[in-house]
Design a binder for these strands. Structure first.
Lengths: 118, 118
DNA sequence: GCTTTTCATAAGTCAAGGCTTATAATAAGT
DNA sequence: ACTTATTATAAGCCTTGACTTATGAAAAGC
């Protein structure tokens, strides 16, 4: 599967998203996550495995615990994928703006809309 | 469900991603997509429904066809959600850089890494 | 008005995956 | 070495969802 595919599948599950969001705030052991979320310890470990294989989290042994933390660089492939469409749309808007400009000079360009929804 | 949740679920499926990517290039009727992808027409319609409910595509009747196209603003919630972690990490890097700076002035700041993976 | 085209919905099948309990593996403390 | 604490893996259950075929709905052409 593609990188962005793995990231999307990993983050599509609400429990994994909760884990990821929590790790973004504070690095945690597995037991910490078990305490924080309403699922069993094996479920947490399984989700962490998926997140790790997607490059979204990393683990570091500390004592006999394993401290997990997010790897924000793992979001890179998804951001790149998103930016494709964003830039395509920017280009489309720009082309439309230019043609409008040519047809009716001095009119307001729609470039403002390029960030709509942000 | 949250907005970003719906977008993530919609884009996690490879067939829906293929539909979305194709619509990003050329607006298409349902029949066009059926011709382009190795699934049945009902499957296409079902996927389009999910994408539409996620705000990622829109439809416009044209003759007796329905022309679908992407709505890039629908990616907004996902981008916002992603930027949370991005900015968190930027802040963390900045804090780390500042403390390193205080401890060892003149050392290279890691701000460059803020865009790693992009 | 009937046919044809195009799409949406209904119903059913099947595999994938998220959850559980049970158990193994690993490391620390006594 | 033995126990305890912590995490990972195995096996099984059960829901979800992606797909199919069959059918309904709506719009255009004769």
């Amino acid at each position: 599967m593609t990188y962005e595919g793995r990231v999307l599948v990993a983050l599509a599950d609400p429990t994994r998203r909760a884990i990821f969001e929590r790790l973004a705030e504070t690095r945690s052991s597995v037991a910490d996550l078990v305490r924080a979320l309403p699922v069993s310890q094996p479920a947490i470990s399984q989700h962490l495995k998926v997140l790790k294989e997607a490059g979204l989290v990393g683990a570091e042994p500390e004592g006999r615990k394993r401290i997990y933390s997010i790897d924000p660089a793992g979001l890179g492939p998804l951001r790149q994928w998103l930016d494709r469409f964003w830039e395509d749309q920017l280009a489309a808007f720009k082309a439309l703006a230019d043609s409008d400009e040519a047809a009716a000079p001095g009119q307001a360009k729609p470039e403002r809309q390029a960030n709509s929804g942000l």
